[in-house]
Simulated assay, not measured.
Amino acid sequence: MAKRLVAIGDSFTEGVGDWEPRLPNGVRGWADRVAKQLGKADPAWEYANLAIRSRRLRGIVEEQIEPALALEPSVITFYAGGNDLLEFRQDVPALLEEYSRAVARLCASGAQVLLFTGFDIPLPPLLEPMRRRNQVFNAHVRELAAHHGATLVDYWSWEVYRDRRMWDTDKLHMNRAGHRYLAIRVLEILGVEHQLAFEPFGPAERVPARQALVRDIEWARQWVFPMFGRRMRGVTLGDELSPRWPHPISPADGMKKLYRKRRQDAIAG
């Protein structure tokens, strides 16, 4: 079996928040960073990333799982369900059942499967029920990982992500530092030597309560209300996007170089 990493999921795996216009969909992300280090450790590694932002679990199951397995991955990463948990009306038991079936299908392939818990993102009181859903979902992910022998990436438990400097301005996606740190942890879990480094932040700036409240209100106006508005209209930020790396590439050849050639070929014809 080829050494092949295949990543599937939503914006978390696509790389949203780690902005890079010289790469597909304008992002980089932790999965690209992991793939690059795998390629440095062994040029035989190949990589595909089928994740698209805003995808719910059903879309990931229907659009990504079988194409991913058809690539015969040796390692497959699976993060899904976060967008579903943000729905006001969500049948959580049904969601857990669908997630369970997806995990069973992936693990039956013989690939090493990485499952991720979701981080405990601070939410305003209005969205507190969604936080409790996340706790239930994470407990289920842990149980499934143990049952199927999958590799657990317990993102929930990493205190470093409580620092707002690990997050993009929407507070829902990691920024470049957050993606880099996650890549380091995934590489460590895989037992791969790497050249990535993460410099700890200095002391966090203390924000007065009134200023913090104003900031939270502005955040809700800019990000939360538009997100739920899109959901009500049935549109998502990923509707016009395609998978970033739908076919296996060799990270050792340089991903920016590969993307530049892909664009040139598309223009030519």
Rank of each mutant, 00 (worst) to 15 (best):
R206W: 14
G254K: 07
D239V: 02
W223T: 03
R230H: 08
P251H: 02
P248Q: 04
K256I: 09
G234I: 03
P200A: 05
W219G: 08
I249L: 12
E199C: 03
A212K: 13
P251V: 05
P248D: 09
M232Y: 13
H247F: 12
V224A: 08
G202W: 10
L237N: 10
F225Q: 08
A220H: 03
L237S: 14
V224P: 01
E205D: 07
P208F: 00
F225C: 09
G234S: 03
H247N: 13
V207F: 00
I249C: 05
S242I: 02
G254I: 02
L237G: 11
G238L: 00
V224Q: 03
A212D: 15
E240K: 14
A209M: 11
E240L: 08
G238R: 09
P208C: 05
L258V: 12
D216C: 02
L258D: 03
Q195V: 04
M227E: 04
A252F: 09
A197H: 13
P226G: 02
A204L: 12
E205S: 04
W245Q: 03
V235D: 02
F198E: 04
H247M: 09
A220E: 10
D253Q: 12
P208Q: 03
P200F: 06
F228K: 05
Q211R: 14
F228L: 07
R233T: 03
P200E: 08
R233V: 02
T236G: 14
L213A: 09
D216S: 14
M255Y: 03
W219Y: 12
L196M: 01
W219E: 08
M227T: 08
K257P: 06
L196K: 00
Q222R: 15
F228I: 01
D253A: 14
P208W: 04
D239M: 11
K256T: 12
P246I: 08
M227D: 07
M255T: 12
E218I: 02
F225I: 15
L196Y: 07
A197V: 10
Q222F: 04
P246S: 08
E218R: 15
G238M: 05
M227F: 11
L258N: 04
A220I: 05
P203M: 07
A252W: 01
Q195F: 01
P248K: 06
P246R: 08
V207P: 01
M255H: 04
L241T: 10
D253T: 03
L241N: 05
L237R: 15
V224L: 07
I249G: 06
K256Y: 00
P243M: 02
Q195M: 01
G234K: 02
P243H: 02
R233L: 12
W223K: 03
R244Y: 04
L213W: 14
R233D: 12
E218M: 13
L237E: 15
L237Y: 09
V235E: 13
P248T: 07
V214H: 13
E240V: 00
